[in-house]
Every structure is written in C-alpha cells, then in structure tokens.
Design a binder for these strands. Structure first.
Lengths: 207, 207
DNA sequence: CTCCTGACCGAACAGTGTTAGGTTATCTAA
DNA sequence: TTAGATAACCTAACACTGTTCGGTCAGGAG
C-alpha cells in the first residue's frame, strides 16, 4: 500500500449517517461529506460507487440491528411484538433516514432475510401463507408509519394557533419530551390493538 | 389584463402532479415542469413561490379528498374504518408523492382540521383525550405505512432469486396486479385487526 | 535508484432551485 | 391615436448538486 488511507467505506458510512442525523437527508451532499472527513468530494468515489449506493449501505447497517429472535419460542404474538419494537427502535434512532429506508425495503438483502423468518414463523403457527404475507406487511405498515409520521417531527410551529382553532386537539404534544413519549405510547397502543385483533380473528376463523 | 396568461397556479399544480405520477418525485424539476407547460422555468415563479411550496399545495389538494364524514353517525369504529380507507385511497392514487406527504402532515391546514374532527369524535365516544390522540396517530401509522411500503413498489427485481433463497416467501406478489390486491387486502386486514383490538381493549378498561 | 500502484485532488460537465433585470403584448388615460 | 403602465414571460446568471477524467504524489517492490 502506497499510503495510509484516510478514507474507508465504514468511515464514510459513519460520517454520512452523522450528517443525516444532524442536518437531515437533504443536508447530506458528497462535498459536505468529504469536508467532514477532511477530503475532497472526488476522493469518496474510490470507496463508494454512488451516493445512492452509500445510502443503501447506511440503510442496511441500520436495519441489521432489527431483532427477529422473538419468534424462536414459537409464540407468534410475542414474536410479532418483539420484532416490531426492535424495528421501530432501530428507525427511531435515525428518523431522518426513514423516508429513504421506506423507499424499497423489499430490495434489501437483510430485509428479505428478516421477512422470510417472520413469514416462516407465522406459517408455522398455523396461519396460511397468504395471511402470513399480509400480517408481515401490516407490521411494516405500523413500523414505518410510526417512524415516519411521528409527533416529534410534526407539530413544531406556533403553539398558540393550535388551541383556539382546533379545540379538540391537545397542545401537550408540542413539547419534544412529551412528543417522544407519545410516539412510543401510540406505537405500543397500535401494536397491542393489532396483535390482539389478529388473535381474536384467528380464534374466530379456526372454529 | 395585459395578456392572456398561459400559466395559473392550478395548471401548474396539475402539471406537477402529472410529472410526479409519471416520473416520480425526483423526476420533477422546475425546468421540466416549465417545459411541460410550454414555458421557461423562471416564469413559474410568478405563480409559485418555491418548489417546496408547490409540493405542499399539490399535497393539500390530494389530502382535501380525505373523507371524515363516517364519524357523523357516532359509531367510532365505523368512522375510523371509513376515514382510514378514504385516506389510503387518496394516497394510493398518487404513490410517488407519499414520501413528501409524510414529511410533515401535522403542518398542513387540512390535516389538522381532519385530525380535530377525528379526535373530537373519539372523545365523544368515550375515549380519553390522550387515548384519542394516540388512536388518531395509530391510524396515521397504518395509512402512511400502507401507502409507503406497499408491495407494488417493492419486489420488482429478478423473480427467480427469491424463491430458492427465501423459501418461506411467496413469489406471487411480484405480479403488479396481485401486488395491488395484496396491498389492499393487507391494509384491510391491518385495519380490521386494529379496530377490533381497540374495541376489545375499550371493553376491558371500561369494566 | 527506478518503477509501479493506489490514494487523493483540481477542474470540469450537466443538471438543480432560484433571482435580477429585460422584453413585450395588452389595457387604460389623455 | 398615442403614451404610459403593468402583468406575463424570458434571458442570463448564481451557487449548488452528483459524478468523471486526468493528474499528482507518497510509499513499497525490484
């Protein structure tokens, strides 16, 4: 090796994620990323083929942390719940990249592997293949919906306007701390209602 | 009036939405939009303050069609279901703009008005204010999650790869027609399970 | 010491959103 | 009828974007 490399694929990924977390998805440019690493923009292309590719790599890194081990015990309700929680947490840690993540989850290797596990567990628990597919899809709806349309990233404008014009709306969720809690609780409510409802339907159809 | 205007805010919105539907969100540029209207890019700025603003206007136009009249009867389960269906349909008609829509639904006038109606109806049906907020949020999770991570926009790569590597996954949802049906059915499943689960929880806590 | 190779850089290309200033057709006022 | 006002559109440019080509230069191998 001619020289000690400053850059590496993983260092680039880390810096990219840092910028995305700090400045948003649109706040990431190759020049800014290069500057963050003390380098010129062109140098990045020795380690990364394309910006889009870089984003996919960052995305995969994030999604690696999703845990589907909850299905191991054979209890699909528990598995579904644990998987959804873990998924949401992974996304909530980097909310700015979620719109990109959602673009094509099915195209990513890790997502497919996970989906395969979930699907298999559901079929093993007695759901039909079609039902298993739809349940897995529904879980994605909840997870991505929760990560995307969270209170934390909404409701940040002038507070006084809300209350008088929309009397039914509570203005408490304007506070960031409250918003984060409300996000988590709303997700838990939705997840719990969903799994409960599924279980009820399961009993009904297996009669 | 000095001349018969070629441009108008609504004509610009319509053309923008057409391009978005056809070429995707990234496929919309001010120059392309201008060309579509037989005009130069700069001319657009006499009718539209900013590209971001234009997108928000297009978004509002789409969201205007969401129908919350299902709550009128006083049946919150029916209201929730109808509202969610109408919402999803509105989004499914223009899937490419959904990532933008999801960015800050809470900032849009029409969304807040709707949210206020839903919230009021839920409180009227006996839910606490906090519960109502969380239920409304959950509904958004489902709707946006369904519109975003739909099968139609995923799974479009080489079909043969899937089956051997992920034995649990069905390859039927690769076909566009099947995918659309699967999207709708999955959403209905999720929605039904969610509302059922909510109702069950309601009975339990009101004891 | 020379050669080679790999890492980084400078400069450019085509494209983006946006703006300042200029042109022109029509409508109003004298 | 003609002069001026004005709205609608355009030309040209700005600073930015992702990406590529050709160069520079440090170190290891012979």
């Amino acid at each position: 090796m001619p020289r000690n490399p400053i850059l590496s694929a993983s260092r680039i990924r880390a810096a990219a994620l840092l910028i995305i977390d700090r400045d948003g998805l649109d706040g990431l440019s190759m020049r800014k990323l290069a500057a963050e690493l003390g380098v010129q923009a062109a140098s990045l292309y020795g380690h990364v083929s394309t910006k889009d590719d870089l984003l996919h790599e960052v995305a995969s890194e994030i999604l690696e942390k999703v845990d589907v081990s909850g299905f191991a015990g054979g209890d699909w309700q528990h598995g579904l719940t644990m998987c959804a929680r873990s998924y949401r947490e992974a996304l909530a840690r980097h909310p700015n990249i979620v719109p990109f993540l959602a673009y094509g989850p099915a195209h990513r290797e890790a997502s497919l592997r996970r989906l395969d596990v979930v699907h298999g567990a559901l079929v093993g628990a007695g759901w039909t293949r079609r039902e298993a597919t739809m349940i897995a899809a529904s879980l994605m709806y909840l997870v991505f919906g929760a990560a995307l349309s969270s209170f934390s990233s909404g409701f940040s404008e002038d507070q006084s306007l809300y209350h008088e014009r929309y009397p039914n709306l509570d203005k408490a969720h304007l506070l960031p701390a409250v918003a984060a809690e409300l996000d988590r609780d709303s997700f838990e409510l939705a997840l719990n209602a969903f799994v409960t409802g599924l279980a009820a339907q399961r009993v009904a159809t297996s009669d």
